[in-house]
């Protein structure tokens, strides 16, 4: 996981600036995750494995993605969790 603050040893003003930047970035990311809900998402996994699924949700640490109708090379999994460590990138359209 990411260290809590790179600026923690700096002055309070710098820390506040960092926290502000953190909140702006996180809010935009959460809104993007929200927009992914119920969308068809294409996952690019390691070893060139590509799967697609309907996106459900992510946990707060972005460690797992909950998806439905996961199309895998050996069949369709109705409900599944994808470990984010196995994912390189994913793609969807809005």
């Amino acid at each position: 996981s990411i260290s809590t603050s790179a600026a923690s040893e700096l002055d309070p003003e710098e820390l506040q600036k960092e926290q502000h930047a953190r909140s702006v970035l996180r809010e935009k990311f959460l809104r993007c995750l929200f927009a992914m809900t119920n969308k068809q998402v294409y996952f690019n996994l390691h070893e060139k494995v590509k799967v697609e699924a309907t996106f459900g949700a992510s946990d707060i640490d972005v460690l797992n993605f909950q998806v439905s109708d996961l199309h895998t090379p050996i069949g369709v999994q109705k409900e599944a969790l994808i470990r984010s460590r196995d994912v390189i990138s994913c793609h969807f359209d809005v």
């Binding site: 996981s1 990411i2 930047a21 953190r22 702006v24 970035l25 996180r26 935009k28 990311f29 993007c32 690019n44 390691h46 707060i60 640490d61 972005v62 984010s84 390189i88 990138s89």
Partner: peptide
């Protein structure tokens, strides 16, 4: 990213928790 993945686009944000 990874061994051979390349993506281009306008950077909307970076998640401060996962650096994604």
């Amino acid at each position: 990213a990874g061994k051979d993945v390349e993506r281009c686009g306008w950077l909307l944000t970076v998640d401060p928790v996962s650096a994604s």
